[in-house]
Every structure is written in structure tokens, then in C-alpha cells.
Design a protein around this nucleic acid. Structure first.
Length: 571
RNA sequence: CGGGGCGUAGCGCAGCCUGGUUAGCGCGCCUGCCUUGGGAGCAGGAGGUCGGAGGUUCGAAUCCUCUCGCCCCGACCA
């Protein structure tokens, strides 16, 4: 491939629309162009990188026993009505009508289609287990697409679905997929962690997210500094504070705190720390008003709260000031658990507190010396807060670290949610009609490319890992007018091609400076330069993009050296 | 969906507040000369319904109304 004939529209300046580094570089390096908010055209380099990721995904999925298929992107509404998600899925599901006025949607995911496929074609346990996947463009009408390929409306996804005859079989398949995912992201050259995730609304028993570690990540994950524990915020647990020593329980004192409502203000006024105060939040849960007790320095994790209440997190929200007053007769800021007439959920940390401060349920008053159990009893107690970096690992007690991650993969054990809803069954070895036990496994292929750039770049441009770089080498002919140099560059080019080494020859009539700048920007692992040092000393320069290491060698050794360097990065 | 910002040449921007000649600048693009190891230089040139519609005015990129698009924060995100 010749640079002069490829569409690689590089940009000198950052496009104003891009915020995060991967978005800026993908645009500047001519990998992608935007069509409209959240949808992008993949130009030759961008597509080549995506194909590399796809290739790795295919190899590992096939090796794990999965089979590739391709399902329609436009899906009939009746399947979604059958699973119940036509109503539940919300605005993200882009719905369209055909010429007969029948309802369809653009597939954001394919559980319904695959389950329909299975129920129509799999009838016996002898056909199981079955693991199918596809790599396809997905459409989700995102409320707010952002960050280029990171969160688009339209994006390329590998989605896989497994069908097992038993729960145990499904667990084994899940583990196989987990292993395959580790291999896939390792081969892509990514630093990542698999974290425990909340399987929440989807149902099913467990779920892991594969998170690429990067500051621009949209998700917060919790990882242990010394053991392997890792979880996302919704799921992360930590050690409870130790049970208190024998402390004398004080009497309750009512103290006037005029105008002091915010935790920090009350604490400053009373000369205590937020950890010695218990705040009372009010939630509306399916119309019911519920009080939530939490240490002053902690925050609610709504997914955990929803789980303990046995509802979905969409069914709860914070009450506004008027709702609080109507339900409790007290303005917000002075609420407390003592004497409250509504159901109360306490975070488990409060059990470890003694003689703490709460609102008095009386405007401008707080109570000190309060103790749970003696003075009030919550309806429910449990872990309902977000873990902080001051907490300690549930498994080993070491320090925890909060870090940002980009979700590039997510695996779920679905169980029988869809097979039951859609009556997808087979006959087991006893002749009994049994629902499939399912799992589903997603990888954001286009997002992987963006995440890789977030992790691998410098001030000059992209430094994609060799495994997913569009091509392995960029060959610079610095003087297309110079016959000798051009002949040498062409010879190297032909020889590399004959050895099946992917290479782009920069044969453009540009000055050397521009070629070097573009080379750094588009970021191929190896840069091979034929220029002045060749005409003067017969030497070729090979430079590694990743670490800047440079080799100057005689022309005849060039191709062998290139092959050596490529082999080394693959090892 | 709530809050904020921005739409002027392919890209990045100025001009708008305070209306008034042919609407500017840098980069890119085209032609020629020159130059050739880190985005050179000189000369010439092409390229704009100032996002769109309506209004105010003798006159609108500029003021007003509506509308479309894009970006950011939040909500949302199987």
C-alpha cells in the first residue's frame, strides 16, 4: 500500500469537537471521521485496526469452542414483546416501522433473536452445549454519545450467547469465556482487570466486566493493592469496621443547631468529624418513602440499596425537600432515625458507631450521644454505601484503590431468564422439557481500539500495540526525486511484501519533516527510513514507535532486521 | 431530559457587544520557482447561501423570534 493512494487525512490541529485523547488522535491520524453525533466512518487505518481486534476475537472464540454466525440487525418487535423488553428497554432502543406499519427495532443486542433461533432448532440435550457469536454493528440510541469511539450510537460489537443443558454446564461455559476474554485482551496489549459486576436487572447469578485501566474511563472500579480482588462500584464490598470496644454509652443530649443542615456545617459547629455523624436521607421507592441512614462521610450506592430492598435501581430516587417534609414533618437537614414513622434502612457501618450525632426531627436541633439498638432500630441493615479508598479489602484486608476503567467486555450468566420468557426448551436425557441455561458475552470491538489508544499514546500520536496496529511498518522514502533512494525504498517495499509483512510505503512528495510527523501520528510499530544516510553511507534507519529505540543498519540487512523485530514483539 | 457553550472556506479561529464598502487571519488545497532528516521559503490562485427560516431596519455575520446541528456537565447507560 502506498501512502499517496491511501485515504489517510491527517490533521495538524486538534479538532474542536474532540475532548479525550483517543478521540483527538483517531481524528487527527485519519483513522475515523464523524458522520453525525455518535456515528463514525472507519477510514482505512481505523478499519484495519478494528479488523485486527476482530481477528484476535475470532481466533480465541473459535478456540474456546464458539461458532460464528451473523444475525439480522433489524429485529421484529414481537420477539421483544415476548421477552418483555419492548416495554422495559426504553429510549435506547431505536424503534422503526416498515412499509406495512409493523414495528421493528435496530438491534442493540441479540438475546431475543438468538433465543428464538435456539428454540426453533435445538430440541435435544444431545445438541448441547452450544456457543454462538457474531461480530456486528450494534445500534443504541444513546442519550449522550461522547468521546468518539468510546460511546457511540453505532459501534462494532462481538456478542456471544451460550446454551447449556444444566446450571453446572453453564458455569463451565462461563469460565471458558472468562478465560478466552483474558486471552483476547492480553493479546490486544491492554492493561485490564476483570471485575465483579452487579448482574442486577438482567438477572442471573454472576457477571464480570473487563475494564481497561485508563484515567478517562467512565466507570470507577475498586481494586485491592495486594490481592486479586477487583469489583466495580455497584458491587464492591469492603471490610466492616471492627465491633466497638467497650465504650460507655452516653445519654442523649438535644442541642440547638440553628441553620446548620449540611453535614460539614453541622460537624464544624459541633466540633466533630463527619464519621461521628449519621445522616438521614429520604428515598422514594415505588411511591413509598424510606429513610436511609449513613455515616456522614459515606455515600449511598443506589444499586446496593435497590438490591437490599428487592427492587430495581430504576424504582428508587431521592426525595425532594417537599416530599421529605410531607413524609416526616421535618425539613431536610434535621432528620434523624429516632421517632421516624417510616421504614428505615441503615448502612451496616452504623452498627460500629457509638455515641453519634443525628438530626432531632425538630427544626434547628440535633441529638448527640445516640446509639443504634438502644435508641432506634432500623427496618433493615446492610451494605448500602460506596466503598472509598479509605476502606480495606474484604478478602485480605489490604488497602483498596479506586481507579477509572473503560468497559471493553462484559460477560453474564443469564440463567433461564430468556429461555423461560420465550419458552425455549429442549428435552433432557429423561425426556423432560427443560429451559436452556444461557450466558451472554460481549466485547466492544471498536471501543477496544479507542481504549488501546487511551493507554498507548504520547504527545506525538498513537502507539498502538503491534497486535492491533493497522500495519506493522511504515516505510519512508524521504526523497522521491532521488533515484537511488527511491530504488532502495521500492526494493525494501517489494521484499517486505513478498515476505507478507504489512507495510505502507510513504511515497508522497512531501518534505521529510511532514513524513516524520505523520509517522509518529499514525503510529505504526516500526518506521523504516530511507534518506540521506542511505545515499551517503548506505544505511537504513529502523525505529520502534513504542520506545523510540533506533537501529541503523546496511540496506541488505533491513528486511531480516524488520522480521526479527516483529517476531520479538509477537513473542 | 435538565444546565452550559458553540455553529463564519477542508481544519483551527477573529469579526458580532456598539448594524454601514469587495467578510478577515493561520494551516491545508491548486500553479510555478526553490528546498529536501522533524509539519521550510517566495510569488500567484481557487474556495464562503456567515447552520436554516422568519422578523426589525434604508441596510443584518452582527439585533429579535423560531428551528436544526455539534460539544461539555448532569440524569441515563442489557
Amino acid at each position: 500500500m502506498r501512502f499517496s493512494q491511501l485515504l489517510i487525512p491527517t490533521l495538524k490541529e486538534d479538532p474542536s469537537e474532540a475532548e479525550v485523547i483517543s478521540h483527538k488522535l483517531l481524528l487527527r491520524a485519519g483513522y475515523i471521521r464523524k458522520l453525525s453525533s455518535g456515528s463514525y466512518t472507519y477510514l482505512p487505518l481505523g478499519l484495519a485496526a478494528i479488523r485486527k481486534v476482530e481477528k484476535i476475537v475470532r481466533e480465541e472464540m473459535n478456540a474456546a469452542g464458539a461458532q460464528e454466525i451473523l444475525m439480522p440487525m433489524v429485529q421484529p418487535a414481537d420477539l421483544w414483546q415476548e421477552s418483555g423488553r419492548w416495554q422495559v428497554y426504553g429510549k435506547e432502543l431505536l424503534r422503526v416501522k416498515d412499509r406495512h406499519n409493523r414495528d421493528f427495532c435496530l438491534g442493540p443486542t441479540h438475546e431475543e433473536v438468538i433465543t428464538d433461533l435456539a428454540r426453533k432448532n435445538i430440541h435435544s440435550y444431545k445438541q448441547l452445549p452450544l456457543n454462538l457469536y457474531q461480530i456486528q454493528t450494534k445500534y443504541r440510541d444513546e442519550a449522550r454519545p461522547r468521546f468518539g469511539l468510546m460511546r457511540g450510537r453505532e459501534f462494532i460489537m462481538k456478542d456471544g450467547y451460550s446454551f447449556d443443558a444444566s446450571d453446572q454446564g453453564a458455569n463451565e461455559t462461563y469460565e471458558k469465556m472468562k478465560y478466552a476474554y483474558h486471552r483476547i485482551f492480553s493479546r490486544c496489549g491492554l492493561r485490564f482487570r476483570a471485575v465483579d459486576a452487579d448482574s442486577g436487572a438482567i438477572g442471573g447469578s454472576f457477571s464480570h466486566e473487563f475494564m481497561v485501566l485508563a484515567d478517562t474511563g467512565e466507570d470507577t472500579i475498586v481494586i485491592c493493592k495486594s490481592c486479586s480482588y477487583a469489583a466495580n462500584m455497584e458491587k464492591a464490598a469492603c471490610r466492616q469496621s471492627p465491633p466497638p470496644e467497650d465504650i460507655r454509652l452516653e445519654e442523649i443530649k438535644k442541642i440547638e443547631t440553628p441553620g446548620k443542615r449540611k453535614v460539614q456545617v453541622v460537624c464544624d459547629f459541633l466540633q466533630i468529624t463527619p464519621a461521628e455523624l449519621v445522616k438521614t436521607l429520604v428515598y422514594i421507592v415505588n411511591g413509598e418513602t424510606i429513610a436511609v441512614l449513613l455515616r456522614g462521610d459515606h455515600e449511598v450506592e443506589e444499586v446496593k440499596l435497590a438490591n437490599i430492598l428487592g427492587v430495581s435501581d430504576e424504582e428508587l430516587r431521592l426525595a425532594d425537600d417537599k416530599e421529605i417534609f410531607d413524609a416526616t414533618g421535618t425539613p431536610s437537614g434535621y432528620l434523624g432515625p429516632i421517632g421516624l414513622q417510616i421504614r428505615t434502612v441503615a448502612d451496616q457501618e452504623i452498627a460500629a458507631l457509638r455515641n453519634f450525632t443525628v438530626g432531632a426531627n425538630d427544626k434547628n436541633f440535633h441529638l448527640q450521644g445516640v446509639n443504634m439498638g438502644r435508641d432506634f432500630s432500623p427496618t433493615l441493615t446492610g451494605d448500602i454505601r460506596k466503598v472509598t479508598d479509605r476502606d480495606h479489602c474484604l478478602l485480605c484486608g489490604s488497602e483498596l484503590e479506586l481507579t477509572k476503567g473503560i468497559e471493553v467486555g462484559h460477560i453474564f450468566k443469564l440463567g433461564t431468564k430468556y429461555s423461560l420468557a420465550m419458552k425455549a426448551t429442549f428435552l433432557d436425557d429423561q425426556g423432560a422439557e427443560t429451559p436452556f441455561v444461557m450466558g451472554c458475552y460481549g466485547i466492544g470491538v471498536s471501543r477496544v481500539v479507542a481504549a488501546a489508544i487511551e493507554q498507548h499514546h504520547d504527545k506525538d500520536g498513537i502507539k498502538l500495540p503491534a497486535a492491533i496496529a493497522p500495519v506493522q511498518a511504515l516505510l519512508l522514502n524521504l526523497s522521491p526525486q532521488d533515484e537511488e533512494i527511491t530504488r532502495a525504498a521500492e526494493d525494501i517495499y517489494q521484499e517486505l511484501r513478498s515476505k507478507n509483512i504489512e507495510v505502507i510505503l510513504d511515497d508522497r512528495d512531501e518534505r521529510p519533516g511532514s513524513k516524520f510527523k505523520d509517522a509518529d501520528l499514525i503510529g505504526m510499530p516500526l518506521r523504516i527510513t530511507v534518506g540521506k544516510s542511505f545515499s551517503q553511507q548506505g544505511l537504513i534507519e529502523i525505529r520502534q514507535r513504542a520506545d523510540g529505540q533506533t537501529f541503523t543498519i546496511p540496506l541488505p540487512e533491513t528486511v531480516a532486521t524488520v522480521m526479527e523485530l516483529i517476531a520479538k514483539t509477537e513473542a
